[in-house]
Design a binder for these strands. Structure first.
Lengths: 128, 128
DNA sequence: TAAGTGTATTAAGATATATAATACACTATA
DNA sequence: TATAGTGTATTATATATCTTAATACACTTA
C-alpha cells in the first residue's frame, strides 16, 4: 500500500489494526508533528473515504473520535476542521507518549529487564 | 480480578485482550524472569482452565502457541512441560524486548519526539 | 481397568469491524 | 431559489475473531 497524502496528512493503512484507529493515529501524528496546523480544513468524510478506499462510516467514526478528543471541530454543512486551540494537541501528544512509555515499561518489567538495560536497547535503535 | 498463582506462574486476566494471548504473555514472563524454571510441569489444560475460569480450548490454544515458540513441550498422555533448553527462552525474551522497543520508537517518531526526549520520559517512570 | 493426560471436532454465540444503501439537515453559492 | 457539498443517522448485512460448550478419541500411569 502506497501512502496517500492529503491536506498535510500522510495516510498508510494496513490490516494490522482497525482502519478507524489508524486514521485517528495518523491525524494525531500529523497534528503532533505540526504537519497539520490549527484551524485547517480536513478532507470531507466522503472525499477521504474515497481516497482511502474505505466506507464513509469508517471515516466518520475516526472523525468523531478525534472530535471527542478535542482535536477536530465540525460545523454542520460546512465541514470538519482542526481545532484552533493548541492545548488539546499538546495534551494528546503527552497522553500518547506517556501511554507508549507505560506499555514499554510494562513489557520490560514482565521480562525482568532493568531501566538501564532498556535504555541500552533504545540507544541501539535507528531513530531516523 | 485477583491474581491466580499456580506452578510459579501468576495469572491475571482482564478483558483488554484475548485470554489466550494473556496466558501466553504471562507464561512467557514467568519463564523470562526465571520464576518458572526449565523442565517443569505445567498445570494440565483442564486444571488451568478451571482455575482461570475459561474454556479448556482457550488454554489449549495458548499452550499450542507456546509449544510452537519452543517454550513448552507436550507428551501425549503425560502432560505439558517447559522446555529443557534455555535458548528458546532467551530468544523469546529478546524478541519481546525488541518488539516493545520498536513499538515505542514507532509512536515516538510519529509524535516527532527525539531519542533524547524519549529517554527523559523513561527516566521519569517509576520502575519498581 | 480407571483416572488423568493431550487432542480434535462441531456447533453456537458474542463482539468488533467494515461495507452498503438511504435518507435527512444544514450551508454556501451559482 | 435551486443545487451541490457538507455532516449525521439508520438499518441491514457480511466477515473475522474470540470464546464457550459438548463430545469423542488416543495415550500414559497407576
Amino acid at each position: 500500500m502506497e501512502p496517500i497524502k492529503v491536506a498535510g496528512i500522510t495516510f498508510r493503512l494496513d490490516a494490522t489494526k482497525p482502519f478507524y484507529e489508524q486514521i485517528v493515529a495518523q491525524v494525531c501524528g500529523a497534528l503532533a508533528r505540526g504537519e497539520l496546523g490549527l484551524e485547517e480544513r480536513m478532507p470531507s468524510v466522503r472525499e477521504l473515504a474515497q481516497l482511502l478506499k474505505v466506507n464513509p462510516n469508517t471515516v466518520m467514526r475516526a472523525y468523531q473520535d478525534l472530535e471527542r478528543s478535542g482535536l477536530l471541530v465540525t460545523y454542520r454543512g460546512q465541514g470538519t476542521f482542526t481545532t484552533n486551540k493548541p492545548e488539546p494537541v499538546e495534551r494528546i501528544r503527552r497522553e500518547l507518549a506517556h501511554g507508549a512509555v507505560q506499555d514499554l515499561v510494562g513489557v520490560m518489567r514482565q521480562l525482568g529487564l532493568s531501566r538501564e538495560q532498556t535504555m541500552t536497547l533504545i540507544q541501539e535503535v535507528d531513530w531516523e
